[in-house]
């Protein structure tokens, strides 16, 4: 049990404290820990975790931490995952804010952030690609993706609407069939 809690804690410390660019930049790192390193969940379950997190308001990273922490170790898991996500950088912000403010305009810091940004973009794109490879199990999945992409591009409808209507669509179209028919074949 202690080993599990420690793993959850360390996984979120690592994920959160190397994600430059806020919550979204942390998502690929959480995936690297939860899916690739510790095998707590597969790509599809990770997508489900993101679906839950995106359906609710507030910061993404803490919602992902709560979901994964709870699945692994109940409420204690939630607490350690949240502490790992929030506390280390917060302490740095509070204790070193004066120093950071002085250097937040420095060319060195800007140079480092400039070089890390393309990497973050690649990591996030890679996450989308890997999840897509595993979760586009039917032709209709591609249809849903295409419609969503088109609506995001051409309109300014709020993402929560896409999540709600895709769930409704899934309920009506996939949900009524017999269980054996909707078992995903992972491709």
């Amino acid at each position: 049990m202690f080993k599990k809690l420690w793993d959850v804690f360390i996984a979120f410390v690592r994920a959160s404290n190397l994600g430059f660019g806020g919550g979204p930049a942390v998502v690929p790192l959480i995936k690297a820990e939860a899916v690739d390193r510790y095998h707590w969940m597969d790509e599809q379950e990770f997508a489900d975790a993101l679906a839950i997190s995106n359906a609710l308001p507030g910061p993404i990273a803490t919602k992902m931490a709560s979901h994964i922490g709870y699945k692994q170790a109940g409420w204690p898991g939630v607490v350690v995952a949240l502490i790992g996500t929030v506390v280390p950088t917060l302490i740095i912000v509070i204790l070193l804010s004066n120093i950071i403010m002085k250097y937040s305009d420095s060319p060195e810091l800007k140079a480092m952030l400039k070089a890390v940004r393309p990497v973050v973009v690649v990591l996030i794109a890679q996450t989308a690609f890997e999840m897509g490879r595993k979760s586009f199990s039917a032709l209709s999945s591609w249809g849903i993706a295409a419609v969503t992409a088109a609506l995001i591009y051409f309109t300014s409808i709020h993402p929560v609407f896409f999540i709600a209507s895709a769930m409704l669509f899934g309920w009506i179209v996939y949900g009524r069939r017999k269980k054996t028919e909707i078992v995903d074949k992972n491709l």
Binding site: A51, A128, S135, F136, I144, L168, G170, W171
Partner: peptide, 14 residues
């Protein structure tokens, strides 16, 4: 069924 429906949306959002 609901999760299967929503996964492609999440992929697109990411």
């Amino acid at each position: 069924g609901m999760l299967k429906g929503v996964r492609p949306v999440i992929v697109i959002l990411i």
